[in-house]
Amino acid sequence: MLALILCLFLSSVLAMLFCVVVNTVAGLFVWRKVLAAHPIRGVVILEPNLFRFESQSLKIQGEISTQSRILGSSVWLYIKGFSKNHWLIISANGVNEQSYARLKRATLSAISGAAGSK
């Protein structure tokens, strides 16, 4: 956003237009990445050593990695998939209280289990 504001102070109209276009494309790219990591709807299935998430457009299956974090009222999961790794952000207000507590426990278990095995 700061780059977009600063580009308006350039002396050339062509440079201003170029900066606005580049910032718009970069913003759309980042927005699509955020939407891919933070789905609105879906089903989380927790099994002992397996995490699955399924929605209309996204299916993720794998293990919860030690890179996962619990930040405020959201869980940032780094899923090690069989062929690909994914980031997935689950908000507390997006699921019911019991499901969120189970997800937090599974994440803490994955983080502390790997730390204990070192």
Results as ranks from 00 to 15, higher is better:
I70N: 04
M1I: 03
F51T: 03
W31N: 00
V20G: 07
G116E: 08
A101V: 06
I111V: 15
I90E: 01
G72S: 10
Q98S: 13
S11A: 12
S109W: 02
G62I: 12
I40K: 09
V20M: 14
V95H: 04
V75D: 02
V44T: 13
K33E: 04
L17K: 04
L103I: 03
A15E: 14
S112M: 10
L50Q: 14
C7Q: 03
R52K: 15
V95Q: 06
R41M: 08
G94F: 02
R41L: 12
I60V: 15
A37K: 00
S99A: 14
V43M: 08
I70H: 05
L2D: 06
L2H: 02
S65A: 15
L10E: 12
L35T: 03
S73E: 13
W87N: 03
K118C: 08
L35I: 04
S65D: 15
A115K: 12
Q61P: 02
K80T: 09
L2A: 10
R105A: 15
L77I: 06
V34F: 00
F9E: 09
K80H: 07
T24P: 02
G94N: 09
A92M: 08
E54V: 14
C7V: 12
K118M: 10
L88Y: 00
L17S: 15
W76C: 09
P48S: 07
L28R: 00
Q67N: 13
S99Y: 01
L103S: 08
C19A: 15
F18I: 14
T24Q: 07
S65G: 09
V95S: 11
C7E: 04
K104L: 10
V43F: 04
L10S: 12
L6W: 03
C7P: 00
A3G: 11
I64S: 04
T24C: 14
S68L: 07
L10F: 08
L35E: 14
Q61S: 15
E63T: 12
Q56K: 14
L46K: 03
S12E: 11
P48V: 11
K104A: 10
K59A: 13
S109N: 11
C7F: 05
N85L: 01
I79W: 01
L8G: 05
T107V: 09
V13I: 11
Q98F: 08
G42M: 05
I89W: 01
S112E: 12
P39Y: 03
H38D: 04
A114W: 04
L35D: 08
F9A: 09
Q67Y: 09
V22P: 03
G81N: 04
I70E: 13
C19Y: 07
R105P: 00
L14C: 04
F53P: 00
K59C: 09
G62N: 12
F82C: 06
A36Y: 07
R69T: 14
S68M: 08
S112V: 06
Q98R: 11
A26E: 07
N49E: 14
S68E: 06
L50E: 15
